[in-house]
Structures are given as structure tokens and as C-alpha cells.
Design a protein around this nucleic acid. Structure first.
Lengths: 255, 255
DNA sequence: GTAAACCTTTACGCAACGTTAAGGTCAATA
DNA sequence: TATTGACCTTAACGTTGCGTAAAGGTTTAC
């Protein structure tokens, strides 16, 4: 089959301008030119265009596409298999995004509550399997088991008002913690108030509070960098300070 | 929760430059500025950013996004429901594209033939329901000839392991073929092994194997330049060699 | 023979940031 | 207290992948 610019453009679902541009930058040159200078594309060009569009769909720059497919060691079949994998990943990400929008609808309808993290799930590209692995295994097996899962579910069941109260309390924990750190003593009155606020805050999502669990969680804040980052962004060492305060508060520091 | 540019950028998976740009064009202004002019974003801005990213994901221009969400009659919930529909459509299109790439792989491997139309399926955006109609009727009646469809469906039903096995077998065909060609005799033991492996490979996607069909396909490998290219890339003349080997294997060379 | 529907090159425009550059701010440390 | 390093700021130019005229030649259809 031979095609003129517009014919090929139509079958490929792109514009003729795009084809001329691809010619201009040396990405896809026509098979030949007619005597009057019209571009004519053949079967090879059709396949090459298809490859180009696969790469383009995956966000690869035109310049880079040219380098890739002009490379003598380039193998179409291998490339196609890679496309397939990437597209499947993209589909997974899209499913995350659909999940996100459905959750967000539920949130707007007041049925559930979302964390800020969740609100952007599916937008980010890379951390797909990392998240899967990390979130699914490590956290739940190492610390979370049941409890993390349960607390998450409970938070999702919160109403708007409850959540506002929850956030406010969370902010108070941080504020009090920061103020208490200025003094520097985890046993101080202010630090103990922070620990108490923290307990109240936890009780929003915890079914049954225990000193042991509270102290254990505080220790986890120090061990796990992701939790630590949450508190340390207020002030470096905040996670440790909170742990110490909680250890005093729960009386677990004497063991 | 309050965020600085970089913190919000990180949680949302975008760059801080993007946030500054969105501020510049009045798309997303920070909740407030610190005394030193630092941008601070609050919960409202987080939700607004989420909405923006949903629109952006669907290819809406920033200018238009601003108009939409600044409109007093804008309803987040309605917008979200529309997002959901659009995302589901996008997913459908992605599935078309994945379908396409899998078909293309099958084509490169010499199992099926594609029309130029099919090669660009999934790239175009709008023709979704048209595709639906076309797929069901025209295409299948015109070219599909049942078998192609069946073999393709069978491949899609393969598990990961089966597919890996299938691929491995395909590679073995090529390897054995290459080795056999060194000797040069299509009736040699090695060449016959290649033909047998080829039969096994075909049986992954064929419902009912017959000597006639096998020999016919082998002949097609030589006739159709696109199939020939797949085998000849191993070694020039490989398609012909395979055909001859298969003709011996099936006993169709004596007719 | 002429209109409609193609094709050509040239060139300016644009969206959505990326990328320096040049400098101010903030919290931890020596 | 000074300094270091990791933040933040504005300003401004650069880039990618085309869209969109403008000005004109070619082909096909009646």
C-alpha cells in the first residue's frame, strides 16, 4: 500500500502536519517523492510509524525515539514486548487513578475519609511496585498487621466533622510537640501534654488503647523513616522526642 | 495540614516549578505567604490541586481548567463523576492499544497478519464506539476468518507461565533452525527437530493441528514478506529453509 | 477550463513547563 | 556567632511538538 501524507495521517489518526514534521526532523522520511515533490509512504514507513507512535504514547521524546529506532541493534520485536509491559503498567496506574476518583467521590459524599497521600495515588508514575511491595508487605507484616489495617478502615469510616476534629487534634500534637522540644525535656509538663494529645489522637482510629501499644507505636515512629519524616519535618529529632515523651507518659521507660 | 511548595510537590508527585507556575497563572494560589514570602498550602489547596490533576490527566488545558473550577456553578462532585467516566473510556482505549501491541507481536512472530487499519487501533481517541461496532462486524467478517481470531483469543487466555513457555519454545525454534541451517539439509535430524518444535509452538495457539495447515503456513512464511522478515532476520533464507523442513516433516513435499 | 481538493515550503505562535542565574531565609552545627 | 546546606524567592530565556496561517504549485472531477 502506498499513501500520500493525508491518507497515512488519516489511517494513523494523526495530522499531516505531524508527518511533515517527522520528515523534517528525520524521524520518518517518505519512501519516495513524486516528480512534483509529493511525499509517498510505503509499508515499511507504516510499520515504522506504528513503532514511533508506541514510543510516543509512552512519553518518549521524538529525538530519543529517532535515536532508538535508528540504532542498528534496535530490535522491533523486543521493543514491542517492552511496550507491552509498559502499557500494562500504565493500565495498572490508570486503575489506581480510577480507584482514586471513586474514593474521592465517596469522600465528597461524606462516606469515607482520605489521607492526602491517597488523594494523589495514581498520578505518580514510578513507585508502583515499590509501593506495592513496601506497603503490602513490610509495613503490614512488620508492624501493621491487623492494627494498621483496622485503623485505616476506621479512618475511612469517619465523617467530615470527625475528620476535621481529628486533623485539628493532629495539628495540636505537632504544635505542642514543637513547643515542648524548645525546653528539651520529654518529662516536662508540656511534653506530657503532647503525649496525651497524641493518645487522644490515636483513639480516633484505635479500637482499644493500651500503654504497650502506644509506646510500641512511638518506637515505630523512630524506626521507620517514613513515619519519622512526618514528625521530623516539624523539627529534626521530633520523632525521637515524641517517643521519649510517650515512654514517660506510659511509664514504659522504667522497664 | 500545611505544606511548603516542595512538600506539596512531593506528595502530589509534581515539581515545585509546576506549583509556582500554577500560582503565576492564577490556577492554584497558596493559602497564604509567610512573612518572608514563602508559599504555604492548606487542605483546600490540596483538594483543588487534586481536581486540577484530574483534569490535566484527561488532557484539558490549564487555562480551561481554571475557567472550569473558577466557575461559581462548578460542582466538584459532578466533575468527579465525569472524570470517572472519562477515565474508564481512557482505560478502554488503553486496552485497545494493549490489544494492538499483542497482535503486533503476534504478527512479527509470524502467527497472524494485520491490516494497516489494525496497526493503528488504540492510538486514535474518538472512535471508541465506532470501534466497538467495527470490531464486532466489519473486521471479523472481512478479514478475521475465525481462525485468526481464535488463535488470538487463545493467546490472550494464556497464563504468565504458559506465555513464558510459549516464548521459550519460540526461541528454541529459532535457535534450532539456525543451527540446522549451518548443515544446510532440510531433511536433517536437526532441521526436523526444528519443524517439530515449530509444530509444538503452533499448537499453543492452534485448536486443531493438521499437516496441511502446517505446510500451508510454512509456505505462507515464504510468500509473505512480512512473515519472511521474522525468520530471515535470524539468517537470510531461514523462512525458505523452515518451509522445506516443514514440508519434509509433514510429508507434503511428495505431492 | 475551471473549481475543488489536494500538495508544497516558510514561518510565526503557543502551552507547559525545564533550566539556569542571582540572591534571600532558616535551622542545625562548629 | 558564624557558617553551612537545604530550603525559598523572582526573573528570564529555552524546549518540545506540533497548530495555524500564508503564498503558491498539482491533480482530479465535471
Amino acid at each position: 500500500m502506498e499513501y500520500t501524507v493525508q491518507q497515512l495521517a488519516k489511517t494513523a489518526g494523526i495530522s499531516s502536519r505531524t508527518l511533515r514534521y517527522y520528515d523534517e526532523i528525520g524521524l520518518l522520511k517518505p519512501a519516495r517523492l513524486t516528480s512534483s515533490g509529493y511525499r509517498i509512504y510505503g509499508p515499511k514507513e507504516v510499520d515504522r510509524l506504528q513503532q514511533i507512535l508506541f514510543f510516543r504514547e509512552l512519553g518518549v521524546g521524538l529525538e530519543q525515539i529517532r535515536e532508538i529506532i535508528n540504532d542498528p541493534s534496535f530490535d522491533s520485536l523486543t521493543a514491542l514486548r517492552e511496550h507491552r509491559v509498559k502499557l500494562l503498567e500504565k493500565k495498572q496506574q490508570l486503575e489506581l487513578l480510577i480507584n482514586n476518583v471513586e474514593k474521592t467521590i465517596a469522600q465528597y459524599e461524606g462516606r469515607i475519609i482520605m489521607t492526602d497521600q491517597e488523594k494523589f495515588e495514581g498520578f505518580k508514575q514510578k513507585l508502583i511496585d515499590e509501593n506495592e511491595a513496601k506497603y503490602g508487605k513490610e509495613v503490614r507484616e512488620k508492624y501493621g498487621d491487623e492494627a494498621v489495617d483496622k485503623s485505616y478502615r476506621k479512618m475511612k469510616e469517619m465523617t467530615q466533622e470527625q475528620y476535621a476534629e481529628f486533623e485539628k487534634l493532629g495539628q495540636m500534637v505537632l504544635d505542642t510537640l514543637k513547643e515542648a522540644m524548645a525546653a528539651g525535656d520529654p518529662a516536662s509538663e508540656l511534653a506530657q501534654k503532647a503525649a496525651d494529645l497524641h493518645r487522644q489522637w490515636l483513639c480516633f482510629t484505635w479500637d482499644n488503647y493500651s500503654k504497650e501499644a502506644h509506646a510500641g507505636l512511638a518506637q515505630m515512629y523512630v524506626n521507620d523513616e517514613r513515619f519519622a519524616a512526618y514528625y521530623d519535618r516539624i523539627k529534626p529529632g521530633a520523632a525521637k522526642f515524641l517517643r521519649d515523651a510517650v515512654l514517660v507518659y506510659t511509664g514504659m521507660n522504667r522497664q
